[in-house]
Simulated assay, not measured.
Amino acid sequence: MSTRQRPLSPHLQVYRPQITSVLSISHRISGIVNALVALGLAGLLMSVAAGPEAYAQFAAIAGSLPARIALFVFTLSICYHLFNGIRHLFWDAGRGFEMSTVYASGYTVIALALLTTIGIWGVVLGGPA
C-alpha cells in the first residue's frame, strides 16, 4: 500500500494575525502563566511557614528588578485572563458574536487589563489609591 501525500491545511504561516486569533492564543498563554503564578504563591506561603529568615530571603528575591518585572507581567496576565474570561462567559450565553462586537470587546479586554495592571502597580508602588 502506498501512502499518498495529503495537502496540509493552511496554518499560521498563511494567515495574517488578527485580533481574534491573537487574543485566543494570548488567553491560552495567560492561563499557563497563571499556573506559574500559583507556584510562586506556593513558594511565598512555604517561605512564610519556614520562618522569618526564609521569608526575608524570598522578599529579597521578589524585590529585585527582574522579579518586579516578572510580577508586573504576572499581574497583567491575571488581569487579562480575568477580563477575557468574562468575555467568554458572554459568548457562552450566546451574546457578542457580531464581528463589530467581537473586535470592540477584544480591544476593551486589552484596555481593561492594561489599566487595571497599571492601577494595581500604582497602588503597590505607593501612588494614589
Rank of each mutant, 00 (worst) to 15 (best):
G126W: 00
A70W: 04
A38V: 01
L44T: 12
A56P: 05
Q5M: 12
R68A: 08
Y55V: 11
I19Y: 06
A62L: 08
Q18M: 11
R6Q: 15
G96Q: 05
L41S: 08
A54R: 09
F97E: 08
Q57A: 15
G127R: 06
A50H: 14
R95H: 13
V14L: 10
V37L: 05
L23V: 01
H81P: 01
T3M: 12
L82S: 05
A50G: 15
G127L: 06
A56L: 08
I29C: 05
S2P: 09
Q18T: 14
Y55C: 08
A35W: 01
A38C: 01
Y55N: 13
W91M: 15
P66E: 10
A67I: 07
A93N: 13
L115Q: 13
T75G: 04
V22E: 03
T117I: 06
Q5D: 14
W121Y: 00
M1E: 13
L12N: 12
I86E: 02
S26M: 11
A56W: 07
L89C: 08
A54D: 11
G63P: 01
Q5Y: 09
A50K: 14
M99S: 07
W91S: 14
I86A: 03
T117C: 08
S21K: 02
P128V: 06
H88L: 05
L8P: 11
G94K: 12
T101S: 07
G51D: 13
A113W: 07
L23D: 02
T20S: 04
L36H: 03
I19D: 10
V37Y: 02
L112T: 01
A113M: 09
C79A: 15
G51V: 12
S100K: 04
L41W: 06
I86K: 00
P128G: 09
F97D: 07
M99T: 03
G63F: 06
R28T: 04
A93S: 14
R16F: 09
D92W: 08
I32L: 15
F83Q: 00
G126N: 01
I120E: 05
A129N: 10
I78E: 00
M99K: 07
R87W: 00
P17C: 07
V109P: 00
L71S: 14
G31P: 01
V73K: 07
W91D: 13
A35N: 02
Q5K: 11
A42T: 15
A93Y: 14
V109G: 07
